[in-house]
Design a protein around this nucleic acid. Sequence first.
DNA 1: AAGCAACTGGAGTTGTCAACTCCAGATAGT
DNA 2: ACTATCTGGAGTTGACAACTCCAGTTGCTT
Lengths: 220, 220
Amino acid sequence: MDSSASRGARRLRRDAEANRQRTLQAAREVFAERGLGVNLDDIARHAGVGVATSYRLFGNKQALINELFEERVDALVALADQALTIDDPWEGFVSLLTMALEQLEADRGLREVVFAELGGRPLVAQARRKFMPAADAVMRRAQDAGLLRSDLTTTDLPLISYMVSCVIQHTQPVSSEVWRRYLTIVLDGLHVRPGLTDMPVVALTTAEEEHVASLNASRS
Amino acid sequence: MDSSASRGARRLRRDAEANRQRTLQAAREVFAERGLGVNLDDIARHAGVGVATSYRLFGNKQALINELFEERVDALVALADQALTIDDPWEGFVSLLTMALEQLEADRGLREVVFAELGGRPLVAQARRKFMPAADAVMRRAQDAGLLRSDLTTTDLPLISYMVSCVIQHTQPVSSEVWRRYLTIVLDGLHVRPGLTDMPVVALTTAEEEHVASLNASRS
DNA sequence: AAGCAACTGGAGTTGTCAACTCCAGATAGT
DNA sequence: ACTATCTGGAGTTGACAACTCCAGTTGCTT
């Protein structure tokens, strides 16, 4: 995991490498707080380097975003595997949703990458292919145990997360925690108990669900 | 309800009044489909009039938006009163949420006005004052009947609507109906049945909730 | 039917904002 | 001490939406 040379690129001079790390760190902080919409000038200023330096070191904004969020997205994927290690299938499912949303809560840029409001097309498409099967396993296990409503489909999961993440975004500046109320409501609506309502429509197909994400990506 | 002269403004010439109506109608359609972000040039083109004409007739974009959405917002408010006429308190509550979201589904501009992603500050603040007490009555009636979870607060309602409206927006181009699945889930999570989960945090206060809306308004 | 105030359309102006580059000067490494 | 590498911030480019100007047209009055 050599920080600089991703692909056989010539080694950077010490000062350049330091600036690279400072830019990366600044981007982490600024993207997390203000989203991917910020311009590189702001990030460079926050890092204490010139704009040109940031551009020379990363090429463009998208490359910086990709480099920065690769690990963050992978961490999200790992949650699904962790969830499977929890004994109680329902608790596993709850943990998956809760922990994923907690990750998203802390980082506006990550929300935008994951739900493709900007940037990360290829980045996310790939993560998605790793995430969905794992999440699917968590879901099925809870459904087989009769704890998660059986009419739920894999494609519902991203949309449920998105729905709650919207509340996070909306309420963040006023309260960092109210979103948990709505997660609670949703989880209660997913937990099997007598008298659950029949679903009024079928879920999206996998292809449709991918289409949703890519459509919302093409805005940028 | 004389269409032209809002405030003692001199009567418009017949052709001008016709162009006014055409612009209004075009704006209705374009805003509904593409949101408030579209420019007046597009609206004017769609109306078949010149840009200057639209500007002369309305002054600016915001004025056009205000004029256009006043009645739409009022219609939304009226739903709360209608909901009270439904005998079953739970069905009344379900109807309020469902019908409000159906209104929002059909009009992206309305979603943006109501949730203040653009424009309508004063417009909505006023509607809110009429809407909240009415909605509150619908809620309390269902809670008193033991059908709606008792830990729900008036300020939860706008956020729940917002949450589902985000799914509407996100999935609209792929499926105009999937959002009803998530409404179903949420409603099941709100319906009283044994074993509902305790709320992890208190709801926003009324002031906080208003703050949320106004913060999200100040972007434009 | 003629005259004029009211109106029209679209080319053009203004302002904003983000992405990205240029280059004279500074610095790391040998 | 020498040079390839790197730096910073002023400046360029391009896009885009809000809004205006004005030469020409049209509805209304008498």
